[in-house]
Amino acid sequence: MSKRVAIVTGGSRGIGRESAERLGRDGFAVVVNYAGNETEAKAAVEAITAAGGEAIAVRADVAEVDQVTALFDAAESTFDGIDVVIHAAGTMYLAPVADIDFDALDRMHRTNIRGTFVVGQQASRRVREGGAIVTFSTSVLGLRMPNYAPYAATKGAVEAITMILAKELRGRDITVNTIAPGPTATALFLDGKDDQTIATLAHAAPLERLGHPTDLADLVSFLAGPSRWINGQTIRSNGGIV
């Protein structure tokens, strides 16, 4: 088999970016997907290649079938196959149920739910035997924090899609799991939160700190590489917060 190949959606920032660079260090050829931030995507590619790895950046809206198909086509034409898909692309909208902006809710559903179906469809058709598919949920599902109902609902859908896909790929030797991070120091998490809120969340876990993108990238690396007996699971990577 040719070199192992990973697609990382949302690979230009945050957990996706850290995961892409980690997989590059692990020896994967990496396809860094991004929706709009070409500068950061190119920086991720440069970081991977500077460390001796192989990578390309490919723009695609994860909710658009034609664009995601082209993303997978680019991976196959450049690196001759696909072994791992890390679906880290996502967006977050917070509001009390009483005050929901339904246009904002629909936009988040489009990325988080439809995007998981679109990426999952291509991954289920194209990932090679011995491969892995990893999606991202959230530990907020267990915390049940006010204002998080819109976001948590989309991630509950991600968990359902992922667990069912694991069973649908029976006999293919492809693992399918979802990672549910706790509070993690990414732009997605920090945006709009004051210092007191961040400090409160940082001390909620027994380890008394926020997660770092590297914490999640370590788990991505494990699920993408040596782990072959963890399948159909939601892994709560949150420092013990729930």
Rank of each mutant, 00 (worst) to 15 (best):
G182S: 06
G115E: 08
T138R: 04
Y93K: 02
T178Y: 02
T91M: 11
A104M: 12
G90Y: 02
L165N: 00
Y93R: 03
A187R: 13
A149Q: 03
A132P: 08
N112R: 13
N177G: 09
M92D: 04
T186P: 06
R107V: 05
A153L: 06
R128G: 07
G90V: 01
Q196L: 15
T162M: 04
R114Y: 10
R144G: 14
I113K: 03
T178A: 06
S137P: 08
D195T: 13
I164N: 10
I174D: 00
A157M: 12
L169Y: 06
F117V: 14
A166F: 06
R128W: 01
S124M: 12
A98D: 14
V158E: 09
T111L: 09
S137K: 04
G115P: 07
K193T: 02
T91C: 11
H109P: 00
G171S: 11
N147Q: 14
V127P: 03
R128F: 00
D106Y: 09
Y148P: 02
G115H: 09
Q121Y: 15
A149S: 12
I161D: 01
L190Q: 15
P150S: 06
T184K: 01
L190F: 13
K193P: 01
A104C: 07
Q196D: 15
A149L: 10
A160M: 13
T135I: 03
A104I: 02
P181Y: 06
I179H: 01
L105A: 12
F102I: 13
S139C: 06
A132I: 09
A104Y: 02
A153V: 06
R114M: 10
A152W: 02
N112C: 14
G142I: 09
L105T: 03
D194T: 10
A95R: 04
I113P: 00
S137Y: 06
D195Q: 14
T162R: 04
Q122N: 13
N112E: 10
F189N: 01
T162F: 03
A149M: 06
P183T: 11
S139L: 03
E159V: 15
S124T: 11
T138C: 12
S139Y: 05
L169A: 12
I174H: 02
D173I: 07
I179P: 00
R114E: 12
G192A: 05
D191A: 15
V176I: 08
L188G: 03
V158Q: 07
D194A: 09
R126Y: 08
D99C: 12
S137R: 04
T184F: 05
T135F: 06
I133H: 01
I100G: 07
Y93L: 05
V158L: 11
P96F: 14
M145V: 15
G115Q: 05
A153Q: 02
S139Q: 08
V158A: 13
T184H: 00
Q122R: 13
D173C: 10
R125C: 08
Y148G: 00
A98Y: 09
A157H: 12
Y93A: 03
Y151H: 14
A95Q: 04
Q196W: 10
